[in-house]
């Protein structure tokens, strides 16, 4: 599962959605692998305005990545900074969580990631 995907996922428990503590989910005991994905600068420029940057900063630091700038870079900044572009490409699209858990900061429920696939089916008592 990509780091980018985590920016668009939250707890599946209905009561958690109104709580700010449920987003982003917190990776726990995660194994990371790196996929090689063809560079696609246009995709990165275009999706960045739709990424929750504060949540991405949290995720990146929890996964042990170097601290991201406090603001999302603009298209112009990225065009001028190949290194930053490459780092974002690696972080958002190439880095995969292959195994581990994603924990909700509100209810504490942990969702399993197995062979790169996150499972959000809830046990009966949480439905």
């Amino acid at each position: 599962m990509k780091v980018l995907t985590l920016n668009f996922l939250t707890c599946a428990v209905k009561a958690c959605k109104s709580s700010t503590a449920s987003f982003p989910l917190h990776p726990k005991d995660c194994e990371l692998v790196s996929d090689t994905i063809e560079a696609n600068p246009a995709l990165i420029y275009n999706i960045l305005p739709r990424v929750d940057w504060a949540a991405l900063m949290t995720t990146a630091s929890e996964l042990g990545f170097p601290t991201l700038p406090a603001q999302a870079p603009t298209k112009e900044e990225l065009e001028a900074d190949e290194k930053m572009m490459g780092e974002l490409h690696t972080l958002l699209l190439e880095t995969q969580i292959s195994e581990g858990m994603l924990r909700c900061g509100n209810c504490g429920h942990e969702y399993r990631v197995k062979e790169g696939i996150a499972n959000f089916l809830l046990p009966n008592h949480l439905v």
Partner: peptide, 18 residues
């Protein structure tokens, strides 16, 4: 299917923000 993603979830308990 790159660059897209897929997860296991129930359509009545989606793991997405409103």
């Amino acid at each position: 299917n790159q660059p897209h993603a897929a997860v296991v979830a129930d359509s009545l308990a989606l793991p997405h923000q409103k």
